[in-house]
Write a protein that binds this DNA or RNA. Sequence first.
DNA 1: TAACTGTTTGACATTTTTGTCGAACACAAA
DNA 2: TTTGTGTTCGACAAAAATGTCAAACAGTTA
Lengths: 203, 203
Amino acid sequence: MLDQESTDTEALIIEAAKKVFFRKGYDGARLQEIADESGIGRTALHYYFRSKEKLFSTVMKDFFSETERRVTQFDPCEVPIVERMRNFASSYMKSALRNPEFDLFMLNEFNNNPDFIAEVLLKTIPVNMHEHFIVPIEEAVRKGELKGDPHQIFITLLSVCMFPFTGMAMIKKMLKFSDEAYMDLLRQREAFILSFLETAFKA
Amino acid sequence: MLDQESTDTEALIIEAAKKVFFRKGYDGARLQEIADESGIGRTALHYYFRSKEKLFSTVMKDFFSETERRVTQFDPCEVPIVERMRNFASSYMKSALRNPEFDLFMLNEFNNNPDFIAEVLLKTIPVNMHEHFIVPIEEAVRKGELKGDPHQIFITLLSVCMFPFTGMAMIKKMLKFSDEAYMDLLRQREAFILSFLETAFKA
DNA sequence: TAACTGTTTGACATTTTTGTCGAACACAAA
DNA sequence: TTTGTGTTCGACAAAAATGTCAAACAGTTA
């Protein structure tokens, strides 16, 4: 068969695997389900990607090398920290909306296999969070522009961005949101966060 | 053997199972590991609790009927909403510190089996979040005491409390925290949140 | 001590999931 | 049509995890 079609099948499998892995986690994912989702036989999975682990590894690398990153580029150091935090939140929310199930998956991977996921992640986003966020926040606190412990501020920034995705299932159930209604809420959240950041840490 | 000892073994197993389930999730948990952690044979698990599912179910019910709830009591409606939010955050942080691994586990359960976990949870904490938080926040926004969409405000409250626990592994890795240093940060977070709540949503 | 009860253990069975292999297949080029 | 290459499929093997059972065991009571 043509090389083209082969690549297509591979891509098809990777897409299907991505969905299933993100939904169920590595342990919960079943090769059979991935096969069904791709519309191919389970044996073909082994033909293209030797084993579950190799498939997983490929999926992860593919995911991070795609445009699917939470933040594609970080501001240079000249940009004031408060603006940088805003941009981070904006990029994050926009990206996460395209893959709402990824965040919880990622937290689990950090729990189960921190080294692997950290390596894959840092390979594509080689940003030192400490230098890039903590240090500048410290400085802003010293100057009296922000108030509070720098780590706590940064963690709060992460919290308000990520949690609505990681906690999606729980919040929907608790507040009786439909899938569509909750997606709407997520879409509106960027604006909420930006306005929230105006006052949240102001000294 | 005495009934006393039997109960002790059961309790021992439940404690061990709790640890393993919270760390690994239902899918990731292995009966062998639970047996090892309890210091008993794997077959004895089946003697006490027929199956993995039954054991899990018992663990969950036990956990929620214990004092291990995130918020043991909610304020009556007379208490002003802002103060209620503060109390919620305080209780939550204190409780979560005793079981830091539970939160991520719970989010996963909500993902995998929302009905089961919601039922168990609501059986012990029969609080309607909408009535208890959303409606009063709406009112406060109308009165001009708070600003922003009520749902977004409530989700933000949840975020700043829960995320530091659910995202523990990720944050530790990202910011190069040691286990002890991160526990310290968590202990200091209650105070941070309380001061943060003073300004975050003020109109 | 003998009979009884609840507990533990090891050997085995079952189920679930993953992995392998060779035959069949489709299609293109010789 | 034959040969070759890459792909698919079904049957089967292996591994991993859960579940069952009867025999041994440890105490308690008659």
